[in-house]
């Protein structure tokens, strides 16, 4: 096992899939000659050539549409949104074309849109957003959001091989801040399965993406105070692994859902509703959420720190729940 970054894990997954399946190709802004805004596709143009590593104009709707067409022709396109924030330009192509095509015409649309999302890089309201809930809300799409290099690699490979359009949310902060061991050989992780990243008996903490690290740190702080937190990393946001969620909630009776996206109609709202419906008799406290507030992501660093959930805020919320 070697220890690599989250970024390197994504790079390896793309490289390996392109290497072994010539239907897989890349489209995106500055991904070729420049190697991508985050240098994930550095060296890809040289290795796979300009037919498989396509630099596109700044026209998300156009190149997502092109990818959909390629997928329908039997290719396996992987689109890089330079920033997830730009995905709204391609919204119609994604939710009306890619998501609904199989329903209408029974033709699969095997494509992946990589969406570098999330804050903490002081990049302001157009380069820090978390748009995942829009796509979870749209039937016909799968939505993935890994938190570790191991998951990032295994889930990206699964996404590329999946016959459905997959929105692959990769957290920009984790690119160089998350390191972890990844097997040297081939492996693929199943979509739609959450993972209990930490066992605990007192409170269930449900989260994903960059908040997993923060949640684990908060859980360690709580453990020092004798409160054992069980952390469920969703990994896939749709289809949602309600089985793992409910099993943990039924064990602890107390739930905190954390995400970096805004609260209103977010993933947390859906999870809370599922818990209320399916595990009501197991609840020993109100289901709680800790999220970003209902505002754009602020540009100012202190304001962004205030805006984002973090380990300290999670620990404080866990304390509230523990004493409830």
């Amino acid at each position: 096992m070697e220890e690599i970054t989250y970024l390197e894990a994504i790079r390896q997954a793309l490289w390996e899939e392109m290497d072994q399946d010539e239907r897989v190709f890349l489209l995106g802004e500055d991904i070729g000659a420049y190697g991508g805004a985050f240098k994930i596709t550095k060296g890809f143009l040289e290795k796979f050539g300009e037919e498989r590593v396509i630099d596109t104009p700044l026209a998300e709707s156009g190149f997502v549409g092109a990818a959909i067409g390629a997928a329908l022709m039997g290719m396996r396109p992987v689109v890089e949104m330079q920033f997830a924030d730009f995905i709204s330009c391609a919204f119609d192509q994604i939710v009306n074309m890619a998501a609904k095509h199989h329903y209408r015409l029974r033709e699969p649309v095997p494509m992946v849109i990589r969406a570098p999302y999330g804050g903490r890089l002081h990049a302001g309201p157009f380069h820090s957003q978390c748009p995942e809930a829009w796509f979870v809300h749209s039937p016909g799409l799968k939505v993935v959001a890994p938190s570790t290099p191991y998951d990032a690699k295994g889930l990206l490979k699964a996404s590329i091989r999946d016959p459905n359009p997959v929105i692959y949310c990769e957290h920009k902060y984790l690119y160089r801040h998350a390191k972890g061991e990844v097997p040297s050989g081939e492996y693929v992780l199943p979509l739609g399965e959450a993972e209990v990243k930490r066992q605990g008996s007192d409170i269930t903490l449900i989260t994903y993406g960059a908040m997993v690290q923060q949640g684990l740190e908060a859980a360690d702080q709580m453990s020092a105070q004798g409160i054992e937190v069980e952390l469920v990393d969703l990994r896939t946001l749709y289809p949602l692994d309600t089985e793992t969620i409910l099993a943990s909630v039924k064990k602890t009776g107390k739930t905190l859902i954390v995400h970096e996206a805004p609260q209103v109609c977010g993933i947390g709202a859906e999870i809370a509703a599922v818990i209320a419906q399916e595990a009501f008799r197991h609840l020993d406290a109100p289901v709680m959420r800790l999220t970003a507030p209902h505002t754009p992501v602020p540009f100012s660093s202190p304001l962004e720190d205030f805006y984002l959930p973090n380990a300290a805020k999670i620990a404080s919320k866990l304390k509230d729940l523990a004493s409830y």
Partner: peptide
């Protein structure tokens, strides 16, 4: 504020 809901 998500930090201080009435419920808790």
């Amino acid at each position: 504020s998500a930090l201080t809901p009435e419920t808790v």
